[in-house]
Design a protein around this nucleic acid. Sequence first.
RNA 1: GGGCCUGUAGCUUAGUCAGGCAGAGCGACGGACUCUUAAUCCGUAGGCCAGGGGUUCAAAUCCCUUCAGGCCCGCCA
Length: 513
Amino acid sequence: MQVTGGNSNEKVHWADVCAADVPQDVPHLIATGITPSGPIHLGNMREVVTGDLVYKAMKERGLEVELIYNADDFDPLRKVYPFLPESYSQYIGLPICDIPCPCGKHKSYAEHFLEPFLKALEELDVKPTVLRSSELYRSGKFTEEIKTVLENAAEIKEILERVSNRKLPETWVPFYPICKKCKKISNAEILGHDSEKHLVKYRCDCGYEGECDYSKGEGKLVWRVDWPMRWANLNVTVEPFGKDHAAAGGSFDTGKEIVEKIFRADAPYPVAYEWISLKGKGAMASSTGVAITIDSMLEIVPPDVLRYLIVRSKPEKAITFDPGMGLLTLIDEYAKLAEKGDSREYELSKISSVATDIPFKHLVTVVQIAKDDDSIIEVLKRSGYNVENSDAVLKRAQRAKIWVDKYAPDMVRFTVQKELPSEVYTFTEEERYALEILVAKMEGMPEWNAENLHNAVYKTGEEADINPKAIFTCIYKAILGQERGPRAGWFLEALGHDFVTKRIVEAVGAGAQ
RNA sequence: GGGCCUGUAGCUUAGUCAGGCAGAGCGACGGACUCUUAAUCCGUAGGCCAGGGGUUCAAAUCCCUUCAGGCCCGCCA
């Protein structure tokens, strides 16, 4: 493998390594897929973004490649998850594409969780061809393969028992009929198979005995066989999957042997990835409730930064996501990359639609001063930022606002005190004198702006023979009730002349008593 | 029980495939900027490369082993 272009010290991105590692002379299909059985969370996103990164790397390399996302909406509901009402116990076992939507606004249970996820993908600039298992099964696309599976059930059973080292029941067949009576994807006993008519005779646990036509999607293959069957049917050449599947004896191992021996096809190039966990909370899983959905992430994280989170770590590395201060660091780090603009990581993360260069940290402060959209724009404009693309600016500001509300540590939060904070009583006589000079300067100021305000503080320091730092501290104490605060010049500018001078005068007066 | 992945500075990590001076970023600390305390720039400290053994002229890297965390051998990203 030679991917460095001759310079062995050059760092090569893992996605480019994958792209260089696959066969170079055949058309490629990258398959990603998630079961929408619950809120699709940040962890799930790794699968799709990982696929997308390899897709982009392969494309840039000049390979013929397509990206698909397969929603396994034909999977049964396994239990009443914590986020579901108890009444959903009646639907356990039904394919999630046939279960009513929890909120009533979508076509089905599966679509309820799928729709926001697909929207998020679009925001993340991931544009796969979307397939639904239910539609594929019901269209008869898999008929031939299911027939092959049923005819080779014994050999498949042997592979599964040997490779994954477990014992399956004597009568085990890798096919679940959907019972005509109870509608469940049932672990029914298979009584017979008519390969001409594509019929399977079964006896369901509910007692019903009948036939199902698998060419019409009246049944489903078990996961471990379904997966390799799809590789063969769709011609999958690359597939990212979670580390659970990657373990020895796991579904990739069994799938590999099944696809080779039963379907006479090759397993895809595997890209196994680690979990994303939440700082202090453990791994994400929709079933346990430890999950930040992609939606709630995109509420605070710009989409390109979210991509960057995946881009910067090799797939086999676990990611611990810290939505608090860690997120701010991440955003900063990404902003620096963006500024340089020539790194591979930036190329893979960036999204053309994201276009504002206002530092997120700055917005975190602005949204705590300016309460509505107009004043946010106003404040930003005065500070010299480009606000032409006001939609993008406000969207970013909105993210900062939600972040401050939900995730920010107290350190970066501040409140402009409505009443005079008690800290002003600790001011020394020197400090009060300096503040008096400062107010005088403010009154005589040709224009109320950050630069003049800032200079005024330094001038005051000279004239009153006091360290300007002390004056800054006084200002923060008088306005916020704390010793530190956002950069003083434009902070005061944003607060406005009337409020600032009145407050400082009050503080001087109070301290004098 | 059998197997897979991970472990490098306080934190996030590069380097491991293919052995050749252990590198970044954040944070901390120090300084500069007589235009910024949460801006910017410069600098400093911080490492038994999880532990032990082996191979080698040379090991974070290869082999063996121990420990810690996670995962798989029902279903899961």
